[in-house]
Structures are given as C-alpha cells and as structure tokens.
Amino acid sequence: MARAQIRITDREWRRIVALPSVRAALRQRAQSIAGRARGIAATETPGASITTEEGTRPQGRTYARVASDDPEGEYGTQTRERRRVLGRAANTKE
C-alpha cells in the first residue's frame, strides 16, 4: 500500500519549527538527556558540569543542545579514558 506524501514549503517549515510546542518538545528532550548525563557524570567524572542551551540556527531551525565542560572525559586523551557521558545519555531509551 502506498503511503501518502506531504509536501510543505520552506516558509511553512519555518513556521512549524518556530511553534512554541516544538520549542517546548526540544527543551524537554534536552533536559531529559541532561538529567541522565548528570547522573552518569556524578559517578564517573565528578566535577563535570552539564548544561543545556536553546537557540535558532541562521536558516531558522530551532535547537536545544546539551553540553559538558569536560571534553577530556567525553573524548578521552592519552592519559584519560574516554567516558562518552553525553553520547550514552542521549542513546538511552526513554
């Protein structure tokens, strides 16, 4: 059975992604990931700070981002094991 296709214009897309409900869903997802990341970081990389930020990209797409101030713990170095706190928190099934 063929699936129906929906086509929207760029203008319509920009209006959709700017809706408060879309921003709220992005914020909620980022806060959920940040909470899991804080839990992982507390046991594996004490002292790491996990933050969220929101914004709009130049082309109009909104985003919510989770960041860590501990890149060595996230990516690893020659002397420090890679912990990948943010990646693991984002890949956890809700």
Rank of each mutant, 00 (worst) to 15 (best):
E53Q: 11
Y75F: 15
W13L: 12
N91M: 11
T51K: 12
A2W: 11
E44M: 04
V17S: 03
E74G: 02
A42N: 08
V66Y: 00
A90D: 03
A34S: 04
R7P: 03
A67V: 08
A4C: 06
E53N: 12
W13H: 11
A4I: 08
D70C: 04
E74S: 03
P71R: 05
D10K: 12
T52A: 04
R29E: 08
R29S: 09
R11I: 03
R7S: 13
I8Q: 09
S21G: 12
R80G: 11
R11G: 12
E44K: 05
I33A: 01
G73A: 07
E12G: 10
R36C: 06
G39V: 02
A42P: 06
G73L: 01
E74P: 00
V17W: 01
E72N: 13
I50G: 00
W13G: 08
R7G: 08
R11H: 14
P46H: 06
P20G: 13
S68I: 01
V17Q: 03
R83I: 03
A30T: 01
S68Q: 02
G35Y: 03
V22N: 12
E12H: 11
T51G: 08
T9L: 09
T56G: 04
T45E: 03
T92N: 07
G73P: 00
A64C: 08
E74H: 03
T9S: 15
R29M: 12
E53F: 10
A90Y: 04
R38K: 14
Q78D: 15
A67S: 14
W13P: 02
E72V: 12
R82H: 11
R83P: 02
E53K: 07
G55Q: 02
Y75V: 11
N91C: 05
T62D: 05
R38Y: 02
V17K: 04
S21K: 15
R82G: 06
I33T: 01
A34G: 02
N91Q: 14
G73F: 00
L86K: 00
Q31R: 15
I8D: 07
G76L: 10
R38E: 02
A41L: 03
V22A: 10
D10H: 13
E12K: 15
R11C: 03
T56Q: 07
D69L: 09
A89E: 00
R23F: 08
R3H: 12
A48P: 01
A2Y: 13
A89G: 02
S21L: 10
P58H: 04
A90W: 04
S68R: 01
R65V: 04
G47D: 06
E12P: 04
E54N: 06
L86E: 00
R15Q: 14
I8V: 13
M1P: 08
Q31C: 10
R27L: 15
Q5C: 10
G39I: 02
T51E: 09
K93M: 12
K93I: 15
T92Y: 06
E44G: 03
Q5W: 11
S32Q: 13
E94C: 07
T62K: 02
G76C: 09
R88P: 02
Q59G: 11
G60D: 09
A18F: 09
E53V: 07
R27Q: 07
G73E: 00
E94A: 15
R27E: 11
G35W: 05
R82E: 08
T62M: 07
S21E: 15
E81C: 09
A30I: 00
A89S: 03
R84P: 00
T79A: 14
R88D: 05
R11P: 07
A64N: 04
K93E: 10
G55V: 04
R11A: 12
Q31P: 03
N91G: 11
